[in-house]
């Protein structure tokens, strides 16, 4: 019996040349579970979502997405998310650097603070931010004196998205910074590099892949952010209305297909940008390996 199975096994291996032989057992089982799980958790709901809007017909979907209110909500969501993630890149880098490179009293507390936007229920974050940035809040009133509207404007949304994205960038970079071989920097110094050259030519390139992955996580999170944004946004249609909120509004008026259309558009744009970012990251990471 065991002979027979082995024989069948080897025949199967030869029939599937794309399958690389691994000495680890359990490939079939683990792949099976992986596929089932991903299918049930990710693909199935997304498929349902993707099927839904087409009851409007191709023309209907196009009409739905090109409506000025939808288009501006999508633009606002993705534009501000990208900006917030980009701002978090240098600032997150600085935070990660400070937290992992220096020893100072209170470092651990600061380190724990970074995680707070992760842990806080987003609605709580929204309430807290609105309290500060509202025209009668401490920072909001200050900004109002300068003629800048913080809460209930695009700037308010931007602030909320920066807030929730920060931990992603910091936490992606910290382990790399800690692992970075100190001798590499010392080598650069003995070769005559000054502090700026070490940072730009030695440290940054080593961190680029993780920085990109942190930024892309922050971006992905910001696109889907709802709770904290709706409090501070003001939610004026066409001006400060984000795409996730628009979906909720459509659902509340029983426009399921319209909501799904916006949802599909978001999934498509998100997926496209993530693929792009991953490609860039892979290209960068490959330079050091392979």
């Amino acid at each position: 019996m065991s002979d027979q199975t082995r024989h069948i096994g080897s025949v199967e291996l030869r029939r599937r040349p794309w399958l690389q032989h691994s000495i680890l057992p359990g490939f079939g089982l683990s792949l099976g579970i992986t596929l089932t799980y991903l299918g049930a958790i990710v693909v199935l709901p997304l498929t349902a979502l993707a099927i839904r809007p087409w009851e409007l017909g191709l023309h209907g979907v196009w009409h739905e997405l090109s409506a000025p209110r939808v288009a501006s909500a999508l633009k606002l969501s993705f534009g501000l998310s990208a900006l917030a993630a980009l701002l978090n890149a240098p600032l997150g880098l600085l935070l990660a650097w400070t937290l992992s490179r220096y020893e100072f009293p209170g470092r651990r507390i600061l380190d724990a603070l970074v995680d707070l936007p992760f842990a806080l229920p987003t609605a709580v974050a929204g309430l807290a931010l609105t309290a500060i940035y509202a025209p009668n809040g401490p920072l909001g009133s200050l900004a109002a004196k300068l003629g800048i509207k913080t809460a209930y404007s695009a700037l308010g949304i931007f602030i909320a998205l920066v807030f929730i994205g920060l931990p992603f960038v910091v936490r992606s970079l910290q382990p790399v910074l800690q692992e970075l071989d100190h001798e590499v920097e010392e080598a650069a110094t003995t070769l005559g590099a000054d502090a700026r050259q070490r940072a730009v030519r030695v440290i940054l390139p080593a961190m680029a892949p993780s920085l990109i992955s942190g930024v892309s996580l922050a971006f992905a999170r910001a696109v889907g952010e709802y709770g904290s944004v709706v409090f501070i946004a003001g939610n004026l249609p066409g001006k400060t209305e984000i795409a996730p909120l628009l979906i909720v509004i459509k659902l509340e008026s029983y426009d399921y297909a319209g909501a799904a259309a916006v949802g599909v558009a978001m999934v498509a744009i998100s997926f496209g940008s993530l693929v792009l970012i991953n490609g860039l990251q892979l290209a960068l990471a490959k330079r050091g390996k392979a």
Binding site: A188, T190, A206
Partner: peptide
């Protein structure tokens, strides 16, 4: 201007 060769070489991997 000292040329230092580290035990683990400390090459720039990228």
């Amino acid at each position: 201007r000292v040329g230092m060769v580290f035990q683990q070489y400390a090459l720039f991997r990228h």
